[in-house]
Nucleic acid binder design. Structure first.
Lengths: 150, 150
DNA sequence: GCTTGTTAGTTACAAAAACAACTATTATTC
DNA sequence: GAATAATAGTTGTTTTTGTAACTAACAAGC
């Protein structure tokens, strides 16, 4: 009954990435959850609108790689909380133009400040070069194959 | 209506890590899901038992940072599929000693081979040094604060 | 311009995850 | 050593996610 095997789970990238992602999300998640009652998809949508301005759900899905049902639900909740407005497009009446309200923008700016602080705090653990390399590698990993969630 | 803001979501670590984790999990997930009908927690439990041999649910929870209810259900499914056996411990009759069956070990070895191949394939995109640094940084990120999921 | 196919977004239902409350057993403390 | 607390694991309920099927609008082909 030899049970010593030599596979290091801690180095297996899908596992390791999930652990790191979960851990690094925690503190930030607590803020948007406790403070704004938001879910992960919701802050993602909020941030996309904050950063890029007016977008359709489709645009967000393409950029964030989120499935349309997730976005649909996030948009509903954000609209309920008066964080975004929705206007049917005249050019194509299937799609809706989404935009932050003043309240939404405030929430976004607030969360963005916290995100920036989090990012800055990483500077104490990693050098600028390390961080840049990490980001570069993660982007390569993230972009690899087209996972069509649209 | 100035909507050009300068926050790069693609560089924000919690977001970026999640994107990378999701992408890198995909191909491997497909294997244990389609081939063995396993969920993520289930393969994690399977691997822990494959690597470390006999363990209790508690041990697994500590190592893998999984909540006990998740483990409890994963253990049930794995036992249903005859991949693991469970024996009440004599030393402490609250806990159960979990172990792979022959079938479980076969599945584990099979999945491990695929995991190793995946890991090896990364060598085409990254140098050994890059990979080592990535793993090191991710481990530091993952280990940061004790997220007690037990 | 009518049929057929696509696309944007929603809704309904099934699967999975999160959270709380529970049982059984062991540890602690007085 | 009885009462209280803590621990291992399970079960039940609620949220959230995933998936498929749907509606409404547009696009293409003929």
């Amino acid at each position: 009954m030899e049970n010593s095997d030599t596979f290091d789970l801690q180095l297996f990238l899908p596992y390791l990435l999930n652990q790191a992602a979960e851990e690094s999300s925690l503190s930030f998640q607590r803020v948007y959850k406790d403070r704004y009652g938001m879910l992960r998809t919701e802050w993602r949508v909020l941030f996309h609108l904050g950063i890029f301005g007016q977008m359709t759900a489709r645009d967000i899905g393409l950029r964030a790689r989120l499935h349309k049902t997730k976005i649909s639900r996030a948009v509903q909740k954000l609209a309920d909380r008066r964080f975004i407005t929705r206007h049917r497009s005249d050019a194509d009446r299937r799609q809706e133009l989404l935009e932050l309200t003043a309240a939404g923008r405030t929430a976004y700016l607030n969360l963005r400040t916290i995100a920036e602080r989090y990012q800055a705090d990483l500077g104490t653990d990693f050098t600028k070069a390390e961080l840049a390399l990490l980001q570069n590698m993660l982007q390569r990993l993230a972009g690899k194959t087209g996972n069509k969630q649209r």
